[in-house]
């Protein structure tokens, strides 16, 4: 039996296919999100990788920003619940999840049994999200994946003090014009994100084990800055970008089992 989880984010689409024993059969991620053909592509990719057809899937759960407009799933569940479910499965004992996506940042508190106990999300502002890093990468004329390498070579601490991404952009341009190195600016951007997300996390309290999911977790420099900022070690989930989709697939399995039982 096959169960599909789809996570349609603001800037990326992810899919995970599992079997009835919660084994991950295939996963896919593309950096195009809601309103694009990203969801169809990732679904097709996991089906092809597993060698099955769409009609062989017993239950599909969709999550993420684009979940409401996706009509081909059996159920939609929020990304908060799905990240909670995914992390509880991947990192047993995790109590705090930091998920930084393309457009938002969330901190989720899990109870001892792995269910969501509380959560906070950033307000409608790009500060402390993947979008902030995208803007920084553009200013530094590099690929977003190269930001981390740049940052690790930083020699001097610089502070990006503006919370607003738009104002931070002007601030960084001024710093570059004033002679700051690209490496130091990249590190400053990491620290800025870490500082904002740590503030969010402190609102609900940070309890170890702290896990991290979402695309930004693939940036080791941001993870290191964040770990330093909150004073806790951070365990990055394997394939952090697809944690939400995995949680959705696990919910799909549960929903199917519940349906069969009734």
């Amino acid at each position: 039996m096959f169960f599909l989880g789809i996570d349609i984010g603001s800037s990326s689409s992810k899919a995970v296919l599992i079997d009835e024993n919660k084994n991950i059969l295939a996963s896919a991620a593309r950096n195009i999100g809601t309103g694009t053909n990203g969801p169809s592509i990732v679904v097709q990719e996991v089906l092809e990788a597993a060698g099955i057809a769409r009609d062989q899937i017993q239950f599909t759960v969709v999550t993420g920003y684009g979940r409401v407009n996706y009509t081909q799933a059996d159920k939609q569940i929020t990304e908060i619940s799905c990240h909670g479910k995914g992390i509880a499965h991947l990192i047993p004992g995790a109590r705090t999840i930091i998920d930084i996506g393309g457009q938002d940042a969330k901190v989720i508190k899990l109870s001892q049994d792995g269910t969501v106990e509380n959560f906070v999300m950033n307000e409608k502002c790009a500060a402390g999200t993947g979008r902030f890093l995208e803007v920084m990468a553009r200013i530094l004329n590099c690929n977003i994946n190269e930001l981390s390498d740049l940052s690790l070579k930083s020699k001097h601490d610089i502070i990006i003090s503006n919370t607003c991404t738009v104002f931070a952009e002007s601030e960084v341009i001024s710093q570059l014009a004033g002679g700051a190195s690209k490496e130091d600016v990249a590190k400053g951007a990491d620290n800025a994100i870490a500082s904002r997300v740590a503030g969010l996390a402190r609102r609900i309290g940070i309890v170890p084990i702290v896990a991290m999911s979402g695309g930004v977790a693939m940036n080791p420099s941001v993870v290191a800055s964040l770990s330093r900022e909150i004073g806790e070690e951070i365990t990055v989930a394997p394939h952090p970008q697809t944690v939400g989709a995995l949680g959705a697939a696990l919910f799909a399995l549960e929903a199917y089992q519940k349906k069969e039982k009734n």
């Binding site: 920003y65 409401v68 569940i77 929020t78 990304e79 908060i80 619940s81 938002d104 269910t115 969501v116 106990e117 509380n118 959560f119 906070v120 999300m121 307000e123 409608k124």
Partner: peptide, 25 residues
């Protein structure tokens, strides 16, 4: 659940996610 609101909001989608998440929780 804490939500910041204002009367003229361009999009309530993020708030909808919070409310749905709270209900799921």
């Amino acid at each position: 659940l804490y939500m910041e609101i204002e009367q003229k909001m361009d999009s309530v989608e993020p708030l909808k996610t919070r409310i749905q998440s709270f209900a799921e929780m």
